[in-house]
């Protein structure tokens, strides 16, 4: 069967240092029921896989050269690759030593974001996840104000600086009885 795709290229936004998330979600909301989304980005947009997965989208991602990616999101039968992030993180256990936790279903690189944007993004992503799922994020400093908020919401976290001494990696496991007010 042929799938009709809406094309969205967020590479110019990303190259300008912008945040395309809203644009993507607008495009998704505007899709016809049988329509898919063809997204062009400057990196593999792993967080999106999870977010759109919740809305019933499968995806197929391929690198198209120059570090750019083309991702097809579709409500149709693209067999969703299982747990996209299961590969990278489990191969390299972090300094936080999350070996007895499941592999992260989401990974974020928040190192270039100004505070408090990393905190906002992490909390937003966690709200979309199921209890027991794990998120990992890279930051450029210890997320001092995030940690009490995670504890208050009943999530477990582990964190520490990577061997480079500059990157702080935090891994969060969503609480079983997450306080989802």
């Amino acid at each position: 069967m042929t799938q009709d795709y809406l094309d969205l290229d967020v590479r110019p936004i990303l190259r300008d240092g912008g945040e395309p998330f809203e644009k993507i979600m607008e495009a998704v909301a505007a899709l016809a029921p049988d329509q898919g989304l063809r997204l062009y980005a400057t990196f593999k947009p792993i967080p999106l896989f999870q977010v759109l997965g919740r809305q019933g989208f499968g995806y197929a991602a391929r690198e198209i050269g120059g570090g750019d990616w083309e991702v097809l999101f579709s409500r149709a039968d693209i067999p969703a690759e299982t747990a996209p992030a299961a590969t990278p993180a489990s191969a390299t256990p972090s300094a936080a030593g999350a070996s007895d936790w499941p592999a992260p279903v989401q990974e974020m690189d928040n190192r270039e974001l100004e505070p408090p944007e990393p905190m906002v993004r992490i909390l937003a992503a966690i709200e979309e996840m199921r209890p027991g799922e794990v998120l990992s994020a890279l930051l450029c400093r210890e997320p001092m104000f995030l940690l009490p908020e995670l504890e208050k919401r009943g999530h477990a976290w582990r964190g520490g600086f990577e061997p480079d001494g500059e990157t702080y990696k935090i891994t969060v496991r969503v609480g079983e009885t997450g306080d989802k007010a």
Partner: peptide, 14 residues
């Protein structure tokens, strides 16, 4: 910043 954190911290992401 402190006002933002105090006011919106509990609602962030929700």
């Amino acid at each position: 910043f402190l006002t933002w954190l105090e006011c919106y911290g509990p609602a962030l992401g929700r």
